[in-house]
Design a binder for these strands. Structure first.
Lengths: 188, 188, 188, 188
DNA sequence: TATGAATGAGTATTCATTCAT
DNA sequence: CATGAATGAATACTCATTCAT
């Protein structure tokens, strides 16, 4: 069944290109034709691989959720001090900055469209948060659960900054902010 | 004699009700008919007071910008220690929590629609940030500019928590997080 | 009952200003608000004097029909030769050129909207033609009925020329054409 | 493989059906839904082949202009006497009578919408007139330029008769009028 | 009377989705 | 499998008409 493998593989390939488009325009503002053009396929092909627009969105969200930021923490190298590990985590976070920004925009869209969803689907993002929290907590055993949340809140805050045009041209500013976090946490 | 209506006043009244609707559904997802229903007027009336959908959005953004979070800081009472003042600010912030969450959602919408905007309009949000920063800096003379930014980043991060369904039923969690911030800053 | 006289008088006054507006824009393209502005009254006032948009149009058509081009022929001075009388008629016609052009445009609109009309109303313009024919025939006893029609066809043809931008700046051209008509008819 | 359709050819086919509809109702009075129904397609299809309502109108006008009444004159067979050639032209004209009546209605619409047009577009109709004049003049070398215009004025006048309900049931009347023209011109 | 704010049915246009090729 | 032409419901917006003042 090589065909099926190909089919799925191609679907994922298309999906991965969707994040950028959805994040840039927003779910509501993008049309299927536009999306098809960006992916360099026809609308017909899009409907061959996905049930409908909502379906693309949902699959994208799920895909992102499975990859999850947390997985990356798991692969992070060990380090002695809290400060060093915070450095490593933030360094990795900053590297994939854009990806997470786009993800946040997708979460917002998902949240705003959640009125048509079941309760289970609405709590979907809560699960994302929880898993991220857990993996982070494992990596930082010396931090309390609340302090782990604090780090996550800070990261979300940083991601939101691109709205204000920060962080796009000013990598310095972002680095500076993370240093403040590390200082405050490591020295407390 | 025509029906006597304070055109401008009524427009603002309508506008204020729009924030909730825009934040809940998102600019793209709301239809003019829906919006009219929520405001309990006809679509015709909506177009009597606003030029078009985009116009409602723009005026709402401008209105919010003029009110500005910053103004509230300015009215905040004086207090001796940094810790006390942080308490006051955060207390006020938590009171108007929902309002700012809605505002954040509006900023996201504004950002996603900014591709069609002029450069001047695109830097609009940067101005919002700057003004908030300045007023906060005045209120906290002992904090460096970067640390003021850090506080703002944290607040933005907190506001984003509605995505993960935090803070709705869990006021405690939010309070706890602000306490961590105050502890870290005041004791550093 | 002076009020009623005033009412009627004012209605006619408004009506007379309508021809220009309807002819310039066309019935379908003009809005009640625009029409009100051109007449320098409010839309409410318009509805005080007329039942609705269609009513204004209908009354205008009827008004014009009663005035009729024919009436003017009746007042035309007597003259010996056919040539002289043709001269007089055409001279009068050319003087009121614009008025008849606007009237033609109104007839076209009336014709295009006639699908919603009764058969009686549809033949309304036929009556206009007939009456004009009759009066012209009386004024030109030496012309056969067909030749009177020929003159009317020519006049309609002239009125249509403003479409091609003739006759607006080129009075000469129009005069020249009428001279050809007179020559052909008088010398035959 | 997509559905194979000669896009351009099908567009022209649709366009040709539009003339009747536009002429019958007038540009302003026809709705896109109605138009689509008359052409037996969906509104979506209409927008697949034309940019918008105005675009259909413009393309129709241009299409008609290119076909032009003049082309037909060019194909007209030679004949010795002026009278014979007038007979041929008028016979051809009477055959396509309805088509030209519809065209006239379109010109009226075009004229009324010309307020929003550039100067170049406004002189468009003048060009139509000029070309018709030139071809007619070539076919009738013995007629002066003014007399050619006179024939055109007469033809336009005849076309307008649908307003007065002439010519629909009374082909005779139209034929009689053309005979008068021929007589007057040929014998002068 | 006269006004113009309010209404909502109706218009042009878009866009997710289907399906013949 | 892939295409894009066709569909028509849904959207933003307009405008004739009403009515409180």
């Amino acid at each position: 069944m090589p065909k099926i493998v190909d089919h799925n593989h191609y679907r994922q390939e298309l999906l991965s290109k969707c994040l950028t488009v959805f994040a840039k325009q927003g779910y509501g503002a993008i049309t299927m034709r536009q999306l098809a053009q960006e992916l360099e396929v026809s609308t017909g092909t899009l409907y061959h691989y996905f049930p409908n627009k909502e379906g693309i969105f949902t699959q994208l969200v799920q895909e992102l959720c499975e990859q999850g930021i947390a997985n990356f923490f798991a692969q992070a190298p060990a380090a002695e001090t809290l400060g060093e590990r915070l450095q490593l985590v933030m360094a990795f976070f900053l590297e994939s900055y854009q990806f997470y920004q786009q993800q946040i925009l997708l979460w917002v869209d998902f949240h705003q469209h959640s009125q048509h969803r079941t309760v289970g689907e609405q709590q979907f993002l809560r699960g994302v948060w929880q898993r991220t929290h857990d993996q982070l907590a494992t990596y930082f055993p010396e931090l309390s659960s609340s302090h782990v949340d604090f780090v996550l809140v800070f990261m979300d805050g940083l991601l939101l900054q691109f709205l204000y045009d920060h962080g796009k041209q000013e990598q310095d500013w972002v680095v500076q902010q993370t240093e403040i976090l590390i200082d405050l946490l490591a020295c407390s």
